[in-house]
């Protein structure tokens, strides 16, 4: 038995919003792989829960008419990995969420839950940052869309205002068209582990595939919330592709990352792997985009 004071089950998005208005203290529960575990630990003991698990309209991936990829917030990690739209356009997202926990966790865990709890280590988050994802929230006043970097306010806190629900994650066409990316999770174990650091990179190459037209580098656990390495990205744009470029870009990320010491790893170690992972992910992204790296 969980120490739940009351459970309200939303039957539709609008019903969910009115439940949130009626019970402002209540915690939203999606798949439960965070909320129920926290309850077991006593952290949310005695809480009221609003379950949105039954809202099947929030499940699934769709390619909209204008080319936007819409991921329903309740789509499970395993369904994202298996989805043909994801595989075709942003396969790296499917690969990234395939590194969450273990198989059973990937069946219950949702991408909406992963982003709403605001933690920096979320395996989906750095890749969503790297692809300029847009978060869609629905509340009493209607729908609001905001860039993912604005959605994250601080550790554990996201921009969900009163009675709002996250309903979708959108990747606009201009964010993915022509881009190829790679994610690396550094963790102590191959499964059931939280990232010591995660790095997601994607690139768009020039027509002749000799130059980096655009580079996007994002991190999890390199700061209190997921982040982009803006200095390194700016420096990378327009550079000719060769191994010096990769080294250089990877070294500049130190101007961006602000990891801390924790029991999982020291700041110094995280800074080290921030550079190494960036270089490896950049290299892999260039290869996926059809580029050749000259020594």
């Amino acid at each position: 038995m969980y120490d739940i004071k009351a459970l309200y089950e939303a039957e539709s998005i609008s019903h969910g919003i009115s439940l949130l208005k009626e019970h402002p203290q209540a915690q939203i529960i999606a798949g439960g792989s965070d909320v129920l575990v926290q309850m077991r630990e006593g952290k949310r003991a005695g809480a009221e829960l609003i379950s949105i698990y039954g809202l099947d309209e929030l499940r699934g991936v769709k390619l909209e008419e204008d080319g936007t990829i819409r991921i329903g917030s309740l789509t499970s990690f395993s369904h994202i990995t298996k989805d043909p739209v994801i595989q075709k356009y942003i396969n790296v997202l499917g690969e990234a969420v395939d590194m969450v926990g273990g198989p059973q966790i990937r069946n219950i865990g949702t991408i909406g839950g992963n982003t709403c709890n605001g933690v920096t280590s979320a395996d989906s988050a750095s890749t969503l940052f790297a692809w300029d994802a847009v978060i869609e929230v629905t509340g009493p006043e209607g729908v609001r869309r905001l860039p993912i970097h604005e959605f994250y306010i601080k550790a554990g806190k996201v921009d969900l205002r009163s009675a709002e629900l996250q309903t979708g994650i959108l990747i606009p066409k201009e964010s993915y068209e022509g881009y190829f990316g790679h994610y690396i999770k550094y963790a102590m174990r191959g499964a059931m582990d939280i990232a010591t650091l995660g790095c997601s990179v994607n690139v768009k190459l020039s027509e002749d595939k000799r130059y980096l037209k655009d580079v996007r580098i994002a991190y999890g656990v390199a700061g209190p919330i997921p982040m982009r390495a803006v200095h390194a990205e700016a420096a990378a744009k327009g550079l000719e592709i060769n191994s010096d470029t990769i080294e250089k870009v990877g070294d500049i990320v130190l101007e961006d990352v602000t990891p801390r010491d924790s029991w999982r790893a020291s700041k110094a170690f995280r800074e080290h792997i921030a550079r190494v992972l960036c270089k490896r992910a950049l290299k892999q992204s260039i290869l996926l985009a059809g580029g050749v790296i000259h020594e």
Binding site: G32, L36, S78, Q104, I105, N107, I108
Partner: peptide, 18 residues
Amino acid sequence: NVIIDGECYNSCIYLAVW
């Protein structure tokens, strides 16, 4: 672990009402 609608879930973190 049990199978629900063809997929595996850890039933300890799955609400019975679901």
